[in-house]
Computed example of a mutant assay.
Amino acid sequence: MGAADIVPGISGGTIAFITGIYFRLLNAIGAIPRAVFRYLIRGQVKAFWQACDGTFLLSLLMGIVGSIATLASAISFILTEYPILIWSFFFGLIVASVWHVGRQVRHYMPVLILPFLAGTVFAWWVTTLPASQLAPSSLIFFGAGALAICAMILPGISGSFILVILGMYVPVLDAIRALDFGTLLIFVGGCLVGLLSVARLITWAFRRFHDAVLALLTGFMVGALNKVWPWKETLSWRTNSAGAQVPLTEASISPLDYAEMTGQDPQLVLAVICASLGLLLVLLVEWAGRSDSGDL
Results as ranks from 00 to 15, higher is better:
I153R: 03
P115L: 04
A148Q: 15
I149L: 00
S158R: 02
G143D: 08
Q133R: 14
V126H: 05
G143M: 13
A135M: 15
P155H: 11
F116S: 10
A146T: 13
F122H: 07
A151P: 07
L154N: 06
A151W: 09
G145R: 02
L147V: 11
S137A: 03
G119A: 08
A144T: 01
V164P: 10
V121H: 01
Q133C: 10
F122V: 15
S137V: 00
L163F: 05
M152Y: 02
A151D: 08
S137H: 05
T127F: 06
V111Y: 12
A148D: 08
S132H: 14
I153N: 00
G145P: 05
G156P: 00
A131H: 07
A118R: 06
S160P: 02
M109N: 15
L139R: 07
A135H: 14
I113H: 05
L129S: 09
P155M: 08
I153P: 00
L114N: 02
S160D: 05
V164Q: 13
I162Q: 08
T128M: 14
L134E: 13
G143E: 08
I149G: 00
F142W: 10
A151H: 11
S132M: 14
G156Y: 03
I165W: 05
M152W: 05
M109E: 15
L154K: 02
G119T: 10
L112F: 11
A144H: 06
F142R: 00
P115Y: 06
P110K: 00
M152G: 02
I113Q: 07
V111A: 14
A123N: 06
Q133M: 10
